[in-house]
């Protein structure tokens, strides 16, 4: 299965099927997905509601396992990994950005961003502090270090989440509709921030969205319909418009 470019492949999905039980029946959320994503890509997954975007991201993020087929992350197959090993893989290789930001409410900005580093347990306190402050500066929140999530605006919270996702220098950052709970201007700056970090840190980003304006920022668009990839190309504007029939309906 190894091809010449596999070392540079951060995600490799082969014949991935995902079924959900629905009473006595089963729904096929993904019907045989083949997908390769290389290091440094800035990819979006598009498609109508219920098309399987979240499911794909969950499988890549190792928070869920496929019904059949194989998902490889950075060359490592996840099929036979235990929960413990999957947790470790997530901790070391993957950063998450959520639609609802999902910060720990009782921790301040600094502590939220520090959390993954603490869990990794590799850096000492002073090194951690340097790294955390550096990344918080990158997302422009140096003045809010000691504020709690409920004291921040939505856009600021998502910046904290981005900082938390990036603080460990993960190989891959996943974001499921990161702008869905933000107004369009703020959403745009968040995507621009992600894009900038993608360019400077060479971090791979995969995010899903309904929003064609957001889609337009991506260098690659993968379009899902009914659990199948119907289009996969780099983000030429015309194509983006053409691939999402619903236009700007969004979420």
């Amino acid at each position: 299965m190894r091809d010449s470019g596999s070392e540079d492949l951060i995600v490799k999905m082969s014949q991935v099927i995902k079924e959900y039980p629905l009473g006595k029946l089963k729904v096929q959320a993904l019907r045989g997905i083949d997908l390769n994503i290389s290091r440094g890509e800035f990819t979006t997954i598009a498609g109508p509601s219920g098309s399987g975007k979240t499911t794909v991201l969950n499988l890549i993020g190792c928070v869920d396992v496929p019904s059949s087929g194989d998902v490889q992350i950075a060359g490592q197959s996840t099929t036979n990994l235990s929960d413990k090993e999957l947790t470790h893989l997530r901790l070391m290789k993957i950063g998450f950005i959520f639609q609802s930001f999902n910060l720990v409410p009782v921790l301040d900005v600094f502590q939220n961003v520090e959390l993954p580093l603490l869990l990794q347990g590799e850096l000492g306190a002073s090194e951690r502090a340097v790294r955390v402050k550096e990344i918080i500066a990158r997302v422009g929140l140096s003045d809010q270090l000691r504020q709690r999530p409920n004291e921040l605006s939505g856009g600021q919270r998502q910046r904290v989440a981005i900082a938390r996702a990036l603080v460990t220098n993960p190989a891959l950052v996943l974001a499921d509709e990161p702008t869905a709970n933000l107004d369009s201007v703020t959403g745009n700056t968040i995507i621009e921030l992600m894009k900038e970090l993608n360019a400077t840190q060479k971090t791979t980003f995969i995010f899903s969205t309904h929003d064609p304006k957001v889609m337009r920022q991506a260098s690659r668009v993968i379009r899902l319909v009914d659990g199948e990839i119907v289009l996969d190309n780099d983000g030429i504007e015309g194509v983006v418009e053409a691939t999402d029939g619903r236009g700007e309906v969004g979420s």
Binding site: T87, H88, S100
Partner: peptide, 14 residues
Amino acid sequence: TTEIGTLRAVGMSK
């Protein structure tokens, strides 16, 4: 639940 799920996703062990 959401907080726990987030922590688990981010890499906190059981």
